[in-house]
Simulated scan of single mutants.
Amino acid sequence: MLEHADGSVTLRQWVDVVRRARLGRTPKAVALMLATYADNDGRHVFPGVARLAVDCELTYNVVQTALQRLRQAGLIDVVRKASRPGQADEYRLILAADVLDRIDVLTPGQHAGTASELAARRRGRYRPAAPSRPAEPAQPLPPTAWGADHDGRCDLHTGAWGAGHSPSYRPGPHGGGPSVPPAPHGDRHLHPTVTGTCTPRRHHPPSTDRTTPPTIPPLMLFVRTSR
């Protein structure tokens, strides 16, 4: 893992180890932000605590604690301390000889296997639902019997209505049944026939046509003729 006895490594090697190290979210975020200020040999890192706090969206004290955690883990080394206010400490990215004893670092195989296992679990949890079966078409309803309303009576064979029927109930087009079926009456029960019409259970005498003139008996006619 180490290229030199003093822990010097390239920037790419250091980032690869930090990415697999189990440091915690905050120290790792600060470490990876430090790497953006380093040269390819891991030197000349002096962004300052305040700048790191702004970059990582953390407080000043949290960044100070994270830098201390990285020093204890053997990942950074202080090259020069700030001599006056306004200056920042200079760091160097290193990998200490006992870094594996200080922190837990996954091997490349463990890192890839853990990522694959997590991806497989998520695919199983969010498996797309099976497509639903299409709804079956609605079956047509059988013809419904219709009959007289409460006020009048209808002739079920010819479609003619009695004199007392309601104006809203009238025969449909082409001589068919009524366009709006009337409400069933409690005393009249209708049964559908083969042709789709209905016949009443009780027999009602045919209605008298009021427009037909009265018939004169033959006797009266004879009397009038004899005079």
Rank of each mutant, 00 (worst) to 15 (best):
L93Y: 05
I94G: 03
L95V: 13
A96R: 05
A96I: 03
A96F: 02
D98H: 04
V99M: 08
V99D: 06
L100C: 06
D101S: 09
D101H: 08
D101N: 13
D101G: 11
D101K: 04
D101F: 01
R102L: 09
I103L: 10
I103H: 02
D104G: 04
V105L: 12
V105P: 06
L106V: 09
L106S: 15
L106M: 15
T107F: 09
P108W: 07
P108V: 06
A112L: 11
T114R: 15
A115K: 14
S116W: 09
A120T: 10
R122Y: 10
R123A: 15
G124M: 11
R125I: 07
Y126T: 12
P128T: 11
P128F: 09
A129D: 12
A129H: 12
A130I: 11
P131R: 13
S132R: 14
R133M: 08
R133C: 03
Q139A: 15
Q139T: 13
P140W: 07
P140G: 05
P142T: 05
T144H: 08
T144E: 13
W146T: 04
G147Q: 02
A148V: 00
D149K: 03
G152D: 02
R153Q: 05
R153C: 02
C154Y: 00
C154N: 01
C154H: 01
D155S: 02
G159V: 04
A160W: 06
A160T: 12
G162C: 00
G162M: 01
A163I: 06
A163F: 04
A163R: 08
G164R: 00
G164P: 01
G164C: 05
H165L: 08
H165K: 01
H165P: 01
S166D: 15
S168N: 12
S168I: 11
S168P: 05
Y169C: 07
R170F: 01
P171V: 07
P171F: 03
